[in-house]
């Protein structure tokens, strides 16, 4: 990736810092969307094929806007597909949570519950960003993720407080995914100037409100909050799980087989 150091209106913030921020948020959305897309035709009922498709489409839309913006900041500028299809694994900045392979439906809902709670807190603050493009993207996304969060909540309630089997599966899923949610709230990867200048949102500040909401849902669903240590996870700095390579191989192979082609 080409780097420049021109300021973009925020003291001390380089163009590439803003681009990297947009790319990280876009990578979260793209990779989460890709995993949800794997569900299509396999959902527990037809209505859920529609709903998961909707959520995947919203996330894909967010990724595209974020990539288009990030790409425009680079020198020379690159397009959304350059960022999605022609970056190698180590250049992806998404949290490991969203790349983890699909399990049963409870696993997907556990992940969506925390991820959408995080995204809602993030985007509802990013609408105030000093960067007008990021603010506009956030204003669109916040409405979408409010629906995603509600959808996940409804299912976690149904599964947690449904049958003995669904309760056990939902608890198992929550226990397994919980350690990977901590990375959403880590701030070390982000250029501090972006937060200080009001361009980016401090991820650490989102933990309290997002997790308070999640805990209330978990309790209402008659589930127990997992008592587990955070996973050691480095997705935000481009060190991913082994599953990420396979996900990208599938996502990218066709585009890479025809370099320079338009579709």
């Amino acid at each position: 990736m080409v780097s420049t150091s021109e300021p973009v209106g925020i003291a001390g913030a380089a163009v590439t810092d803003v681009a990297h921020y947009a790319i990280a948020l876009g990578d979260d959305a793209l990779i989460a969307s890709q995993r949800l897309t794997e569900w299509i035709t396999l959902a527990p009922q037809l209505e859920e094929d529609v709903a998961l498709g909707n959520i995947a489409l919203d996330l894909l839309g967010q990724a595209r806007l974020l990539f288009q913006y990030a790409g425009s900041l680079l020198d020379p500028p690159v397009g959304e597909d350059d960022l999605a299809y022609f970056r190698d694994e180590r250049a992806f900045r998404n949290v490991s949570l969203v790349e983890r392979p699909n399990g049963d439906f409870a696993v997907t809902m556990a992940r969506l519950l925390v991820f959408s709670a995080y995204q809602l807190e993030l985007y509802s603050r990013l609408v105030q960003s000093t960067d007008s493009t990021l603010a506009a993207i956030a204003a669109k996304a916040v409405k979408e993720v409010a629906y995603h969060r509600d959808h996940a909540r409804q299912w976690v309630l149904r599964l947690g407080d449904g049958t003995a089997e669904s309760h056990a599966r939902m608890q198992t899923a929550l226990d397994a995914e919980w350690p990977w949610t901590a990375e959403l709230f880590e701030a070390g990867w982000l250029a501090p100037e972006l937060v200080a200048g009001g361009l980016a949102v401090d991820p650490a500040a989102l933990a309290q409100p997002a997790l308070a909401w999640v805990r209330a849902v978990v309790a209402e669903a008659t589930l127990a909050e997992p008592e587990v240590r955070p996973a050691v996870s480095f997705g935000r700095v481009g060190r991913h799980t082994e599953e990420m390579g396979r996900l990208l191989a599938e996502l990218q192979h066709l585009a890479r087989s025809h370099p320079g082609a338009t579709w």
Binding site: T37, G61, D81, Y85, E250, A261
Partner: peptide
């Protein structure tokens, strides 16, 4: 779906 060659086509 998971292999569409551009994000626009995927959408």
């Amino acid at each position: 779906l998971t292999r569409a060659p551009s994000l626009r086509r995927k959408a």
